[in-house]
Write a protein that binds this DNA or RNA. Structure first.
Length: 245
DNA sequence: TGTCACATCATGTCGCGCTA
DNA sequence: TAGCGCGACATGATGTGACA
């Protein structure tokens, strides 16, 4: 016996156009359903705009590497990972590049879609553009000091526990407040600042990747390259080459 | 509301191989 | 040989539940 909730959910699933229209009302959320080959099947308008395409028809049937050449490889690999392992991805912080070269930080969530036979048929996902910090939050001022330290010292080695101590907060509280106000964990916040700094240095300097890694607080280029690739879908060298074109 | 403990996950470090 | 990317392993960060 199906519950009312299950019946409604099934009906909504049958009427995918309805779901699509609802997500069309959310310009800050990229919504998509992909098939087993990672081709877009259903997208909302935010995906069309981000890709620089003119219509949903231009997007559907294509893969991320065709739509976003700078970032395609890793997106495809990540999709395949979700579909091959059945493991979901929740709120992964990533940097996306729009068709005009603009940068946009997003939080991505992806779930595998199972068919009636239990086999994975594709995936459903959203990417939320990172919201602005909630400056009206009661504890915003309390976190200002933490933010200042991150901005000033993101190029240095730092432990979140040490920064928490410096602003007289426990790591738990710092994490809760950071999520409420900035929509990111302290670690994600630090990572975002470091990758932003790295992008600037890669675009505007001739420093080697190893030197840039050091300037961004990494003691090793290896960790930096890995973080950079996870966040931006490309290696530091690929990023510099793409920006030099 | 805040702290603590524990399990799990993510990240940093080291070493190695590849390429120009 | 320098610069870079990748894999393995150790360690720190995070998520979650219990409790004061």
């Amino acid at each position: 016996m199906m519950t009312e909730y299950e019946m409604l959910f099934k009906a909504a699933g049958r009427d995918l156009a309805l779901v699509e229209h609802i997500f069309d009302r959310l310009p800050d959320v990229l919504f998509y359903i992909k098939d087993r080959a990672s081709r877009y099947v259903i997208v909302n308008w935010a995906v069309v705009e981000q890709s620089g395409a003119k219509s949903k028809e231009d997007v559907c049937g294509r893969t991320a590497d065709e739509l976003f050449p700078v970032s395609g490889y890793s997106t495809l690999a990540q999709d395949m990972q979700v579909m091959n392992t059945g493991k979901q991805i929740i709120d992964l912080l990533r940097l996306y590049f729009s068709a005009d070269g603009g940068k946009q930080w997003c939080l991505s969530t992806k779930y595998p879609i199972h068919g009636d036979d239990g086999e994975i048929q594709g995936l459903i996902g959203i990417s939320r553009r990172l919201p602005r910090p909630d400056e009206n939050h009661l504890n915003y001022k309390r976190l200002n000091e933490f933010l200042k330290i991150l901005e000033e010292d993101c190029g240095k080695k730092m432990l979140i526990s040490e920064v928490a101590k410096r602003v007289s907060l426990s790591v738990d509280i710092l994490e809760k407040l950071s999520k409420e106000i900035f929509h990111l964990t302290p670690k994600q916040l630090l990572l975002k600042m470091r990758i932003d700094l790295a992008c600037t240095l890669l675009e505007n300097s001739d420093l080697s990747v190893t030197d840039i890694a050091a300037d961004c607080g990494y003691s090793d280029h290896s960790a930096f390259s890995r973080q950079f690739k996870i966040a931006t879908h490309c290696t530091p060298r690929e990023y510099r080459t793409s920006k030099a074109k």
